[in-house]
């Protein structure tokens, strides 16, 4: 088992390396740098900056170095000092700006993952065991619908319905009095009151795909001879289903975390924009629009690294639950 974990950890290294490269490319992609943007906005306000001043600023932020040096510096600062660079727009270190928002993204993604499990597992099992029943058709219909509806559209519709019929504003994660308040029990309770809407919106699409995966896998498993063996022993049908096929169908279910997690993070970003949540979404969008590239690049870097870690955890879980994999 440990050998497996270590091997997977080693596999992660190149992945994270490529992620960091891609994120850095994103930082470097826009023509010009933040100084260009800054100059343009200064010029618009009438206060022009001297060429020397600009060069001085460039030197301070290392913008005059060659590309690979900038990449190495960026990575070195992250690894040694947890320093992701400087957000020119917020005039603060990137980590200070995005730390709490990243945490909220993680919270929402995990809550949505939990939600999709709670929804997908029972409905998937039911749909498979009672294939072609009314319930199966209903679940399958909602499954398809959930897959076909883009996250943001669902968010819009929910927002519209809540506004129109309940007179509620569903945006945000906190009530006004807690927005700026430090963490307290009251704030956590307040978060619980608000988080379920984004949780459901973000989790719907993944619930739908997990439902379909569970159903398909379970249908395969139910036809396997070992189910008959177990029934021939005298076990009750539902016990057989829960002990054997569900157990095996769980494997792909768990491994699917690997692709569901990026989906959820993606979803929480875009839903965050629509519902104006204090997550990475709105900030990332804004950073991209204003070419605050260290912030934008660090977001991509961390969001992607987080999903990779999530996938790693799901792989380890999988190996733990399925003996065939860990002996492989």
């Amino acid at each position: 088992m440990w050998a497996f974990v270590i091997r997977r950890l080693i596999y992660m290294i190149p992945t994270v390396f490529i992620i960091s490269l891609v994120s850095f490319i994103i930082i470097e992609l826009p023509p010009g740098d933040y100084m260009t943007t800054l100059m343009a906005s200064m010029a618009a306000e009438g206060g022009e900056m001297g060429q020397e001043e600009i060069e001085a600023l460039r030197r301070i932020y290392g913008l005059d170095q060659p590309v690979y040096v900038r990449y190495i510096n960026w990575m070195r600062n992250i690894i040694t000092r947890w320093d992701f660079g400087y957000s020119f727009e917020w005039r603060a270190p990137v980590w200070d700006v995005m730390g709490s928002r990243l945490a909220m993204t993680v919270v929402i993604s995990l809550a949505s993952l939990l939600f999709s499990w709670v929804i997908a597992l029972p409905t998937g099992i039911y749909s498979a065991v009672r294939q072609y029943s009314v319930g199966d058709y209903i679940f399958t219909f909602f499954g398809f619908l959930g897959l076909a509806t883009p996250n943001f559209l669902l968010a819009l519709v929910v927002m519209f319905l809540a506004h129109r019929y309940l007179g509620l504003s569903v945006g945000g994660l906190f009530s006004e009095q807690y927005q700026m308040a430090p963490w307290s029990l009251g704030k956590v309770v307040d978060l619980m009151k608000h988080i379920w809407i984004p949780m459901i919106i973000v989790g719907t699409a993944s619930s739908a795909s997990l439902l379909r995966i569970t159903r398909a896998n379970l249908l395969d498993e139910l036809r396997k001879p070992y189910v008959e063996t177990a029934r021939a022993k005298g076990l009750r049908m539902w016990r057989v289903v829960l002990k054997y096929p569900v157990r095996i169908a769980l494997n792909p279910f768990i491994s699917s975390i690997g692709f569901v997690l990026p989906q959820l993070v993606s979803g929480s970003v875009i839903v965050g924009v629509v519902l104006n949540l204090p997550t990475t979404g709105p900030l990332l969008l804004r950073a991209l629009q204003s070419q605050d590239m260290y912030l934008a690049g660090s977001f991509t870097l961390l969001l992607a690294t987080m999903t990779v870690i999530g996938v790693l955890i799901s792989d380890i879980l999988l190996a733990w639950i399925d003996p065939r994999i860990r002996y492989d």
Binding site: K224, E228, A230, A232, K233, Y244, R247, N251, I321, D322
Partner: peptide, 21 residues
Amino acid sequence: IRGADIAMIFQEPMTSLSPVH
């Protein structure tokens, strides 16, 4: 009755046993 009075050995020893138990 199953298992106790009448027991059965199935065709494929590969797939007739659960792989994860």
